[in-house]
Amino acid sequence: MNQTSTRITLTVNGGRVDETVECRKTLVDFLREDLGLTGSHVGCEHGVCGACTVRVDGSIVRGCLILAVQCDGAEVETIEGLSDSAEIADLQENFIARNALQCGYCTPGMLMAAAELLAEGGVPSREAIREYISGNYCRCTGYQAIVDAVEATARQRAGRTS
């Protein structure tokens, strides 16, 4: 009971990971420092900015508000996984086409949040898009272009299926 580090086994972007971690290590630090997955960014480190957003067991969470040790047995997906699987290739194309990023620091978290909204299907209102990404700070774009890109992706996906 006095151990301050422990062994964990989890799935990260489809691959099995077996590591010893300090119990106090957050998931985002584990991903970046131990696994070299630096696509998830560290911003405020207390749950406000959303730059560290990742998926755990299919739902987006703050990578700074969950411990790596809590992810023992979990399935973790990061922006690297979503990019490699091409799950959000259309969304990423629309981010580029509409200049929805400048410095890019918020972009991985923004994409993770937008991907979850888009996965619900349909074409959300601009207000609903703004609400869904309200937990992700962007200090460059003023959000307008990001909302444009998410909305365009939703319309394209709806057009393809109808």
């Binding site: 301050t4 119990c23 809590q70």
Partner: peptide, 11 residues
């Protein structure tokens, strides 16, 4: 790494 060191038990 921000938190101070602690032990962890999943009950």
């Amino acid at each position: 790494m921000k938190p101070s060191s602690f032990a962890y038990a999943k009950t």
